[in-house]
Design a protein around this nucleic acid. Structure first.
Length: 332
DNA sequence: AAGGAACTCAACCGCCAGCCC
DNA sequence: AGGGCTGGCGGTTGAGTTCCT
């Protein structure tokens, strides 16, 4: 048995709304409210429309304080930041942009903002988990032990990507910012202390023992099918393989936190594997990040999200490989 | 000027969670 | 407890518009 239709499809009008219909709907809702029942509303209002259609028209177009038109730079930043962190949760994103509808934001992202970012970072289009439709290819195996610096030196340009739009010095920046040449890795490879506070506040770079920055490299990094997203979490490492350096300790220490975000062990592992960076990560700390951003701190809804969606925001997890979902950072 | 391509965005579709009986 | 109903949501569509050649 099929699903019961929400209305009599044969007797409802579809397509664009006329000014008369808009006026009818607006007048009715302003007078009587929705009555908590959209399905019954069109009949009461004298509209030959599906209740869902009325709801959509009201929410996306007729209700007061709706803003249409150009998005500001600030709005761009918020959208990018949230998208990078939580993916296509348009209603959650819209909740942070007064007057904007989820539909507007979705359209804006799909038609303009995504392209805008691509323009800023052309080779991103080549291969990126950022765009799930892009095929992912594991990087070639590597026997050398490049330091990140050496690795990055092979490149023509280096980008820092911070979806929360904060530079390491806490100044605001655009999503993709060409970075200065990376400083030399610290001699002791110690990236950051294990202070939980650092984990909880990834912006406090000053707490790290050594300079740390995340880089997004247009040719080399993308060649490896990676994109580094988000704010940072620190970790330390003392050699060993990439996999063995996966720093789960900080999260494991905080069982409550782990539970809160429903972190799964496999979620960590999928992002940290030799296939992504090979031995190039041997001397660097490398771990999945908890995307704690100031914005999120204001967002109870965001906090409730499954942790994996913070890390892998490509939508349908059942259709994508773990590697495609890889969202990672590397530090030195 | 015309025709095709590309883009925009309002609207629709169908799934899902939660509520109610 | 469970089935039906509804609202909410994200993905997709397609008509209208703009751009390009």
């Amino acid at each position: 048995m099929g699903r019961a239709p929400c209305c009599d499809k044969a007797n409802v009008k579809k397509g664009p709304w006329s000014p008369e219909e808009d006026a009818k709907l607006k007048e009715f809702i302003e007078k009587y409210g929705t009555g908590g029942n959209w399905i019954a509303l069109p009949q009461k209002a004298g509209l030959k429309r599906c209740g869902k259609s009325c709801r959509l028209r009201w929410l996306n177009y007729l209700r007061p304080n709706i803003r249409h038109g150009e998005f500001s730079d600030d709005e761009d930043r918020i959208i990018c930041s949230l998208y990078a962190n939580i993916g296509s949760r348009w209603s959650v994103i819209a909740a942070q942009l007064p007057g904007r509808t989820d539909n507007d934001i979705k359209n804006y992202w799909n038609t303009k903002l995504k392209k805008k970012l691509l323009t800023m970072l052309p080779s991103l289009q080549e291969r990126s988990s950022f765009f799930p439709s892009m095929p992912f290819q594991p990087p070639p195996p590597s026997n050398d032990h490049h330091t990140p610096h050496q690795f990055l030196n092979n490149s023509s340009s280096i980008y820092t990507f911070t979806p929360n739009f904060m530079n390491v010095d806490n100044t605001s920046c655009s999503p993709f910012v060409q970075s200065p040449p990376p400083p030399q890795p610290p001699a002791n490879n110690l990236m950051c202390n294990n202070n939980t506070e650092v984990i909880d506040n990834c912006y406090n770079y000053s707490m790290c023992n050594s300079p740390m920055q995340e880089y997004y490299h247009t040719s080399s990094a993308m060649k490896y099918g990676m994109i580094m997203f988000g704010s940072t979490t620190c970790s330390s490492s003392e050699g060993g393989s990439c996999m063995s350096q996966i720093n789960l300790g900080n999260y494991n220490k905080d069982h409550e936190e782990k539970q809160k975000y429903q972190i799964k062990q496999e979620d960590y592992q999928m992002t940290h594997h030799d296939h992504v960076l090979g031995d190039q990560t041997q001397n660097q700390s490398f771990m999945i990040k908890n995307h704690v951003t100031p914005l999120q701190n204001d967002l109870e809804e965001v906090k409730q999200l499954n942790f994996s969606s913070y890390l892998f925001h490509d939508g349908d997890e059942s259709k994508t490989s773990h590697y495609q979902k890889g969202v990672c950072s590397y530090y030195y």
